[in-house]
Design a protein around this nucleic acid. Structure first.
Lengths: 340, 340
DNA sequence: GCTTTAAATGACATCGATTGCGTAAAATAA
DNA sequence: TTATTTTACGCAATCGATGTCATTTAAAGC
């Protein structure tokens, strides 16, 4: 099955003109007489002519398409960020292609390369939890592909980055828990090597320190798959509650971990085990939970917008940009029943 | 900023060969001597040569890319369906491009046309709630673009379709509510013109009929934006509870409506207003709700897989396919506290 | 009536890769 | 030795659109 489209050649043949003339008429060139233009435009409309973007991409080496790679869009933070990106892209005349890495390094490499070699003018990416080697991105970046990182950024590649103040988010949340009287605050977080994991941990530690609560390493649990695999969260929780000093509160880093943690707790402790919960989450549904969940919410839409704006700036700049900054957005903590 | 890649020409120039020879060597043609092949392959590897997919698409009029258009991927049904589609596409050597219509007819038209004219070999689509005119799809379909519909299908276009048994889903859910003793079962549903809305309503009515419960039209409320706008759900609920016969149960059609309905009820009736809830939803979080939610769950992943399989079948078939069928999957009802 | 000049249009190369056809050189057959 | 076949490669067209550089035509100038 093949999908055929009208081309400039069809118009030229029909009207007994050359391809060049038709092309110029369509682009409203001053060199073409009004009469001819009218003729061409009318016929083009009649046969529903559309320029073939593939041919244009080949010629112009531009596709007006931007690639987005996120771990998963069932994660609300990412789907909201994508909405922000789309809003900017569409109003700037760009289209958007989206793929998921499913937290897999291999899939991320495939997607990134497919997009790069397939035409995108630039790339917005939040790396997978597995990604520790950045060669696939470095290589493309060095060869001139504009890249902007958001949320899960790669420190060692010098370009624009857009993140949330993860330190402060975790600091504020931890402080809130401390103020509520919790002393043994566990922190279930994502893979250790991730930049945002480190920042969140720092915020957590600083809050403890500022409140003169000793840091207990055994209260920190890493989930190497970012909570994608339920059992890792289960293992983390099990091992936390095996210790003689049991946590009275849990701070979770990441949407996935937050939402997986709750059913796991329910499953493990059928009785009303009183533990406070607080977590990073952009889900709209946490209010409906039992108990309703206190969360750290990130301005995902705005982060997406900012990242897209920066990327388009790079793409459209005439000369290579040398100075890059990192935009930092504030998250907000929303207090509900789970930390009472 | 431009992103430059090595081309066949670069290799040809360097090795003093013609482009054709290089091309054939890379494709391991029998016409090329082993020696030359080795030379070319080695140099290609050295400079990290990749064929330019844009040029290939132009030439072959095939892109090995499939377009997916869904209303929103924050809707779990769609994100799960997409995962199913990706799994099949990747293992068949296709890449996938995804866009959201955001339940907007205009955006859907733009996305569909962008994809069609941009290169996709085929299209998987679930139409937006606003879409009542199908010309944008008909036009492309008539011109030979392979299209497969899933979930929100378009009846009047003759191609493969993959859906859930919406009639049965609604029938089973309503039957369950009736068996639990509920008599005044309201049905809050999506836009009236949608095929799945009609089927679900039919299932609902049949269940009433089979149980000798009179159908009350005032218990049916349509949300023309499919619940995307909170106020429409609020209005629906308000008007339901204004009547003298108040509903004792609500059956909601659609993920969005289901999850919006609950906070709205909470907001409108702060006291413990005892109403049973049941709804179509593929969210993983409904278990955490207060009360945990009885749902009709659709096999979204499998639906996505099936749709992609059918599409690839059309794309790869040598001769036009004339006979199309509609695959129907069973949904399952999961009983929790909200219908007790 | 012949030259200059502007206006309108066409021919052709280009972007990167593929491919049908043609052909020089080498190998084989007669 | 000459004729034929095989091997190994190059040329050029193609896909759709753009842009440079002619070229034609007509109007204006002398």
């Amino acid at each position: 099955m093949k999908f055929e489209s009208a081309t400039i050649k069809d118009i030229a043949l029909k009207l007994n003109l050359s391809k060049s003339t038709v092309s110029r008429a369509l682009r409203d060139s001053y060199e073409i007489s009004e009469q001819t233009k009218k003729l061409v435009l009318e016929y083009a409309k009649k046969i529903n002519y559309r320029p073939n973007p593939i041919a244009l991409s080949l010629k112009e080496r531009r596709s007006h398409t931007i690639g987005i790679v996120v771990p998963e869009f069932s994660n609300n933070f990412f789907s909201q960020a994508i909405n922000g990106m789309e809003s900017i892209a569409y109003s700037s005349g760009y289209n958007v292609i989206i793929t998921q890495s499913h937290e897999s390094y291999d899939r991320e490499v495939i997607n990134v390369e497919h997009m790069a070699y397939r035409s995108v003018d630039g790339l917005l990416i939040s790396v997978s939890v597995e990604t520790e080697n950045y060669d696939h991105l470095k290589k493309l970046h060095e060869r001139g592909l504009p890249i902007v990182f958001f949320d899960r950024i790669v420190e060692e590649i010098d370009t624009y980055k857009v993140v949330c103040d993860n330190f402060k988010g975790a600091y504020d949340a931890t402080t809130h828990l401390i103020k509520k009287g919790f002393k043994n605050i566990a922190h279930i977080t994502s893979a250790e090597q991730m930049f945002i994991t480190q920042k969140r941990l720092e915020g957590y530690r600083k809050a403890l320190e500022d409140n003169k609560i000793p840091f207990q390493p055994q209260l920190i649990k890493y989930c190497v798959h970012g909570g994608k695999i339920t059992s890792e969260v289960e293992d983390a929780i099990t091992s936390l509650f095996k210790k003689k000093i049991k946590p009275d509160a849990i701070l979770s880093a990441g949407d996935r971990i937050t939402t997986v943690m709750l059913p796991v707790m329910k499953k493990l402790f059928s009785t009303n085990h009183k533990v406070a919960y607080m977590g990073f989450s952009n889900s709209d549904l946490t209010d409906l939970f039992c108990p309703s969940l206190s969360v750290i919410r990130q301005p995902a839409f705005e982060i997406g917008q900012a990242a897209m704006e920066q990327l388009i700036k790079i793409i459209e700049s005439k000369r290579p940009i040398k100075e890059f900054n990192t935009q930092i957005f504030e998250s907000s903590i929303i207090i509900k029943e789970s930390t009472n």
